[in-house]
Design a protein around this nucleic acid. Structure first.
Length: 435
RNA sequence: UCCUCGGUAGCUCAAUUGGCAGAGCGACCGGCUGUUAACCGGUUGGUUGUAGGUUCGAGUCCUACCCGAGGAGCCA
């Protein structure tokens, strides 16, 4: 009996009679020759049928196959330079063909399509090679971020998705109903992470995050995935070291293990190869000076960077760059002010190069209960909702901090995609959440 | 919420000053022993986003609305 193989492992089966179970992505022929390209989930392979070899009956059955028809092919694995596919270089010399289903006409053809058309058919679009490559890299990025943290003493501590209040009062929340009480989908697990470090020292949470912003840009999703580490006894400098180690590990791992996918995406690797610690550190003050010198003379100290500013700054470096010590006014209430200079806070964003901008936002947190209470009052936040948060500063408070890494933005950069919508299987965009 | 652009065949697009609604691809039929988004010949293709208006005549001009894209603000 012939064994079923994964196309990814085809090189290990040269000369063997094997079976491949999958779907037809492409069919082309030349008289008595028929080329079938088949996807099995692990890769893409070309199968060749020669009419005199397989017989007229099997040959005409194969000729009737439509795009996305499901089938089981048996045949001998042959090495051939001309064979396209992933990994490629090997093809299946078909001896038998079992048709599982003849597919109805598939709407997504190998030709060009518009974004609207494709997003309406995201459930089918996922089958295309490009999406396959991106989402495999996504799986690796998520796994390796977690592997790195798990291997460096961090404990995964899950934080709730249904929450009673905002972490930061500013952004828009998705509201839902918790048995008669208003509840909100989480925008961050940070506040809970801050509680968890007192039990576990170094923690992280990883999960979906919801932002009901009326944002329509290439960098925004209504639902995205965020990795949020938080560390006890950590200062801003410690956080930046963790961030550059983590990001470098993930990028270098992808370069080694997903060369085929990056090539398929036509993502050049030279710039990614430079992503190694240390990353340059740029103070907000210096960043403002760079902007003034670089064509943004009107930029006012105290403003947050807009998209063109971020793009300009990242273009000045060939690696991700930290911008630290932002004005306190522009940042969230819980960030620790710089001692002796309270107008800036101990915060740092990590900006990805090539115009991708912010992929990480982080800070050292206020650890003093009096200062934190004053900040909550100054921001007109409901004191009672933060009572448990203030507790954390009453029972063994320590300097601590953490950051949030946006998975989709990181992926868009690594894959060099023009928009984050392709980095998540089912993107939730403004006014679009089908399918 | 604001600014800009767009909606024509299944898909991607064209249509000159307001004057016969077209092409490529797909699909279907036929041909070809090495195709890489094959190629060659043939067939098939339309409520021009919706509702009004101007006009002898509207895909084209006007009004309102619907849908989408890019950007701003805000953020990861």
């Amino acid at each position: 009996m012939t064994s079923v193989i994964s196309v990814a492992d085809i090189a290990q089966h040269e000369g063997q009679e094997v079976a491949v179970k999958g779907w037809l992505t492409h069919k082309t022929g030349k008289g008595k020759l028929l080329f079938l390209r088949v996807r099995d989930g692990s890769g893409f392979v070309q199968a060749v049928l020669f009419r005199p070899s397989v017989g007229d009956e099997a040959f005409s059955r194969a000729k009737k196959l439509t795009q996305e028809s499901s089938l089981i092919l048996t045949g001998k694995v042959k090495k051939d330079q001309r064979a396209p596919g992933i990994p490629g270089g090997y093809e299946l010399d078909v001896s038998g063909i079992e048709v599982v289903q003849i597919a109805e006409p598939f709407p997504i053809t190998p030709k060009e399509h518009g974004v609207d058309f494709l997003l309406d058919r995201r459930h089918l679009w996922l089958r295309s090679r490009r999406q396959w490559a991106i989402l495999r890299i996504r799986a690796t990025v998520i796994r390796e971020m977690r592997n790195w943290l798990d291997g460096n003493g961090f404990v995964l501590v899950d934080t709730p998705i249904l929450t009673p209040s905002a972490a930061e009062g500013t952004t828009t929340l998705f509201e839902t109903d918790f048995h008669g009480t208003p509840a909100f989908l989480t925008q961050s697990g940070q506040l809970y992470n801050e509680a968890n470090i007192f039990a576990f020292g170094k923690v992280y949470c990883f999960g979906p995050t919801f932002r009901a912003e009326r944002s329509k840009t290439r960098r925004h999703l209504q639902e995205f995935w965020m990795l949020e580490p938080e560390v006890a006894f950590a200062h801003l400098e410690d956080l930046m070291e963790i961030e550059e180690q983590l990001v470098s590990h993930v990028v270098q791992f992808v370069l080694v293990h997903h060369a085929k996918e990056l090539a398929l995406l036509e993502r050049g690797t030279e710039k990614l190869e430079r992503v190694l610690p240390p990353f340059p550190r740029l103070s907000y003050d210096d960043a403002v000076e760079m902007l003034h010198a670089g064509g943004f003379p009107d930029f006012k100290w105290g403003d947050d960077f807009g998209s063109p500013h971020e793009t300009y700054l990242t273009e000045q470096f060939d690696k991700p760059v930290f911008v630290h010590h932002f004005p306190s006014e522009a940042k969230a209430f819980y960030m620790e002010p710089e001692p002796g200079r309270p107008e800036v806070c101990r915060s740092a964003d990590l900006l990805a190069p090539e115009g991708y901008g912010e992929i990480i936002g982080g800070s050292e947190r206020m650890s003093d209960p009096e200062k934190l209470l004053a900040a909550i009052r100054q921001h007109n936040l409901p004191e009672e909702a933060y009572d448990w948060y203030l507790d954390l500063r009453r029972y063994g408070s320590v300097p601590h901090g953490g950051f949030g890494l946006g998975v989709e933005r990181t992926l868009a950069w690594i894959c060099k995609l023009p928009h984050v919508r392709e980095t998540i299987p089912y993107p939730r965009l403004l006014d679009r959440f089908y399918p």
